[in-house]
Simulated scan of single mutants.
Amino acid sequence: MPEETITVPTIIRSNRLIGHLKGQDKGPTIFFFGGIHGNEKAGVVAIEKVFEQLQSMTETLSGSVIGIQGNTPALFQNKRFLDTDLNRLWTTKNIDRIKSKQESELGIEEKELLGIHDLIISLLNAQSPPFYFIDLHTTSSKTLPFVTINDALINRNFAKLFPVPIILGIEEFLEGPLLSYMNEKGYVSLGFESGQHEVISAVDNAVAFIWLTLVNTGALPKNEIPFFKPHFEQLENAAKGNSTFYEVEQRFALSKNDEFIMYPGFESFQKVKKGTILGVNNDIKVETPKSSQLFMPLYQKQGAEAFFLIREIPKWILKISEVLRKIKADNLLVALPGIKWNDSGRGSLKVNLKIARFYAKSLFHLLGYRNRTIDSTHIIIQNRERNARNDMYRNEPWF
């Protein structure tokens, strides 16, 4: 039988603040976002469900819990976006550009960005650290629930507390996600994809993830939450016991004029052999260039990616990477020809393109460098570890 679908929330508020609860004791400040894409309602519904129950638990709550609704106009129309993808606008350059516009010049998503940005800043200034940012999403295809993170150790260590797969490296292929922007500020930031659009299990998985987040951050005591174990087991079962780390290795990008149709039956984490025909783009068959695992195949009209390919990361590589980052081995990279620091804060490297082809991409990944910016002669690669506010999280039990 097909799974029960969710209905559009009965109230999509003009005030984007879903809820803001503050406990009696000091503790973390946790931001939950839902509906950044307007056809992904499960996150909004899940945040509302948790806040309804959390209202009566403020005596045991430490810190602050904040729920924020994303793209309100797109939620009304059940569309991913109306003018432009809200989750591709979050760069400092874009935000400055949008702020410089007259109000009459702003697009729909640009107005949404300014509203969300102003709300975040006002709340950050009024709350106490440590800060956590959780963005709830769903996918157009069937999928295991999973976490996406920018590749910093604080994100890795926190993400490991959840019994779901963890995807690294997507920031190299996407420009402007909300969580990448927050991660560049040094905060722990996780994206959680709870399941397929519209199905009720996506709401249930998001609800479970929110409760686990509240416990894992120390906002709620685990021993006083009788439904912690059922929620943990729900996610564990939905993920089929898979809590592996994966890395995005390839993206099949789409332009505005492309007409892509994914063939039915594909889903995230499915193993595909080289030459598997996945669909057609502009009437040309699209096949996998190598044997790999499929990730987020596109089954909706809006979207700039037809699919990604991912691969498992061996545990020993993760461990070596952790050691090298802790000792700041990337200081040695500037001794290599064609590589120098791009800024005085040593947060990014400038690499000569003529020489870069001789260096393995995996070397930069080990040391925490991703998110390339390319010009005609050089690439700029940024290190999340250099920006991470480790001191803010040093006393957290998961650190």
Rank of each mutant, 00 (worst) to 15 (best):
E105D: 15
I66M: 12
H117I: 06
E59V: 09
R80P: 04
I68N: 01
Q53M: 09
S56M: 06
T60C: 07
N94S: 15
E110F: 03
T60F: 06
L124F: 14
F76Y: 14
N87C: 05
V50L: 12
A126S: 15
L136T: 01
F131W: 04
L75K: 02
T60I: 14
T84F: 10
R97W: 09
L75H: 07
L82W: 01
R80W: 10
L75Q: 02
T58L: 08
S128C: 08
F131G: 05
T92K: 13
S122W: 08
K49Q: 13
R88I: 00
E103H: 12
T91A: 06
K99D: 04
V65D: 09
S56I: 05
L124M: 14
D96E: 15
I98P: 05
L123F: 10
R88C: 01
I66K: 10
P130L: 07
K49D: 13
K79Q: 15
E48S: 08
T60S: 12
I68T: 02
S140F: 08
R88K: 10
A74L: 03
T84C: 11
K99Q: 15
E109Q: 07
G107Y: 13
P130I: 09
S62T: 04
R97C: 04
I108S: 11
T139Y: 09
I108H: 05
L113N: 02
W90E: 01
S141C: 12
T91P: 03
N87S: 05
E112R: 06
A74I: 00
Y132A: 08
H117E: 12
E112G: 05
V65C: 12
S122E: 15
T139K: 06
T91I: 01
G70R: 00
L54V: 02
Q77R: 15
T92G: 08
S56Y: 08
L119Y: 00
L82C: 08
T91S: 13
E105L: 01
E105Q: 15
I121N: 13
R80M: 09
M57V: 06
I134P: 03
I120C: 00
K111F: 06
S56L: 06
K49H: 12
E110L: 11
F133Y: 13
G107W: 02
M57N: 09
L124V: 13
D135T: 06
L136C: 04
F51R: 05
Q102L: 14
L75C: 03
N71S: 11
R88M: 00
L54A: 05
T58W: 06
F51C: 03
D85V: 08
T58K: 10
I116N: 00
I121Q: 15
S141M: 02
G63T: 01
T84V: 14
A74W: 05
S140D: 07
P129M: 07
W90K: 02
Q102W: 11
L123I: 14
E110A: 11
R97D: 07
Y132Q: 07
L106S: 00
T72S: 09
R80Y: 11
F51N: 02
Q53E: 15
K111D: 08
A126D: 14
Y132C: 04
S128I: 09
R88D: 05
A126L: 04
E52S: 11
N78L: 13
Q77M: 13
I120E: 02
R97S: 12
P73G: 08
D96A: 14
S122F: 08
